[in-house]
Amino acid sequence: MYFSGLSTTTKYNVISIIDSCLSVNTEDEFKCKVLGKTEDLFGQGMTACGLADLKFSKVSSLSNLGFPSLFLEKIIDSTGTIKSPLFYRWVNSHSPQNIDEEQKRNDSLSSKQLSPYLEFELGNVLSHGLVDFNQNYGSYFAFAQIAERVETHHAEIIEILIPHLHVAYSRLMREQQPPLSTPITCARKPALVSTNPDEIALDSKEKMLTNSITLTVREKDVMRWLFDGKSNWEIGKILNISEYTVKNYVQRLINKFGAKNRTHVVAKALNMGLIELGN
């Protein structure tokens, strides 16, 4: 992950979303615990995502949080064929797309193509997706009514998140797991995620782990630079140890926390209050 230039709060929120991508089990959980958290990063009022057959440009699944149904009918016809100009621009470029509310235009879109976005007052729009390995289908995520003008750092954040969003959403849509017996309550505007570890709610299992896990000075050093998004090679240079030694420390941390990967171990350490967040 490339975290350079992002604030500590943004780093934490990104890691929290990635961690949630690993643990959600239903579409409702994905909407609340993943898409809901993206509001802390983009401040959007509307979010939608879907899977599409890229060969025929047809939607196979769609999840919507706030987009007007009449707008969706304009960009997806009754057969499921996608008509969104932003979607086709993404298909051709595989890069983040945006519409600037202030300029009321996107450099590649005509006034006619922009009219649905302006008609429904979608404001600043950011979208991106990922083509799956088999090249036959892809996922696409759109965020509208973003509170501030879309800048370079927004594109950087979505570039970091999109592989994790794609894998999680694709998995859930393919598995089609039954809904939970207890309904999930999802607030439209969740509170900002705290960067103070003392304020982070811990489940009972993690509380037990917190009491049982101790880190050596060197493990704390490695964890700190993992949080900053450094590679094994970079950490080795900083700490004046070999890349192989760093790799061993990372694996030791993964095993100690029962994590799935280096990103997951950082997320767990943050939730347990074992990483001090500074400026």
Rank of each mutant, 00 (worst) to 15 (best):
S61P: 04
L62V: 05
L62S: 09
P68N: 08
L72K: 03
E73R: 07
K74L: 15
S78A: 09
S84L: 04
P85S: 13
L86V: 11
L86M: 09
Y88N: 09
W90N: 08
V91G: 14
N92W: 14
N98P: 08
N98R: 13
E101D: 10
Q103N: 11
Q103I: 09
Q103P: 01
K104Y: 11
L114V: 13
Y117N: 08
L122P: 12
L122Y: 02
G123R: 03
S127C: 15
S127G: 14
G129E: 05
V131G: 10
N134F: 13
Q135T: 15
G138A: 07
G138K: 03
G138Y: 01
G138S: 06
Y140Q: 06
Y140R: 06
A142W: 00
A142F: 00
F143K: 09
I146Y: 07
A147Q: 11
A147E: 13
R149L: 15
R149F: 00
V150H: 00
V150R: 02
A155T: 09
E159K: 06
E159M: 09
I160C: 04
A168K: 00
A168E: 00
Y169Q: 09
R171T: 05
L172T: 02
L172H: 02
M173T: 00
R174N: 15
R174C: 10
Q176R: 04
